[in-house]
Amino acid sequence: MGARLGAILAGALVVGGPGLAPGAAGAQVPTRVGTCAATTIARIGTRFSDTLVKPNGDGIDAGTSVDLRNGVYGVSYAYIDAVARSRVGDRVMTCLVLLPTGCPKGDDRGKMYTTTNLRTLDSWTLPDSQHMCGGA
């Protein structure tokens, strides 16, 4: 897992520098692909509630959502095990990995972030919206 974290962070520019305390008010949202920021998990839930619930096999899946203290939000229609193994307050490194292109003016949905939990060394990649720019 350590090699995986190293591969994610290799060549990435950490926004705020090494002196930035994770979760600090000064933590920034990465704005350029390949930039990363240290922060903490502020909330873990589903797309509809503040409690993440593992699907019980009935075909109903409320998905996953995660809020980071620096303002990055991630969401999925699926249950994400790596997020479920995380806890509020865990230190994470989040990196912007994709910016959407060809979006209507003012519609900036669809940014993708890869986040690595520094306690579990699990990573997940999620968009910042349930729909890409120009979508529903």
Rank of each mutant, 00 (worst) to 15 (best):
A3S: 07
L5G: 04
L5R: 08
G6T: 08
A7H: 05
I8Q: 15
I8V: 14
G11A: 13
A12H: 10
L13E: 13
V15I: 04
G16E: 03
G16F: 02
G16A: 07
G16I: 04
G17P: 08
G17F: 08
P18T: 05
G19V: 05
G19P: 03
L20N: 06
L20I: 10
A21F: 14
P22I: 03
A24W: 09
A25Q: 04
A25P: 06
A25I: 03
G26V: 07
A27L: 08
A27N: 04
A27R: 01
P30K: 00
P30T: 05
T31G: 00
T31W: 03
R32Y: 05
V33W: 06
V33C: 08
G34C: 02
T35I: 03
C36R: 00
C36G: 03
A37F: 06
A37L: 05
A38F: 11
A38G: 10
A38Q: 09
A38S: 14
T39Q: 02
I41S: 07
I41Y: 09
A42D: 01
I44N: 10
I44P: 07
T46M: 02
T46N: 03
R47C: 00
F48L: 12
S49N: 00
D50C: 00
T51Q: 12
V53I: 13
P55N: 04
N56A: 08
G57Y: 11
D58W: 00
G59A: 15
I60Y: 12
I60M: 14
I60G: 08
D61Y: 11
T64A: 15
T64F: 14
T64Q: 13
S65D: 08
V66M: 13
V66D: 06
D67Q: 11
D67L: 08
N70H: 07
N70L: 02
G71K: 02
V72W: 00
V75H: 09
V75Q: 13
V75Y: 09
V75C: 12
S76E: 11
Y79R: 10
D81F: 10
D81Q: 15
V83I: 15
A84F: 13
R87W: 15
R87G: 14
D90F: 02
R91G: 00
R91P: 03
V92F: 05
V92A: 02
M93Y: 01
M93N: 05
M93E: 05
T94F: 12
T94S: 14
C95V: 04
C95P: 07
C95R: 03
L98G: 05
P100G: 07
G102Q: 12
G102A: 14
C103Y: 04
P104M: 15
K105G: 13
K105H: 14
G106T: 13
G106V: 10
D107Q: 15
D108E: 10
D108M: 09
D108P: 02
R109S: 14
R109W: 13
R109N: 15
G110L: 11
M112R: 10
T114S: 11
T116A: 15
T116L: 07
N117H: 05
L118I: 00
L118W: 01
L118M: 10
R119L: 09
T120W: 08
L121F: 13
L121T: 09
D122I: 09
T125R: 06
L126D: 09
L126F: 12
S129H: 01
H131L: 05
G134A: 09
G134N: 10
G134R: 08
A136Y: 05
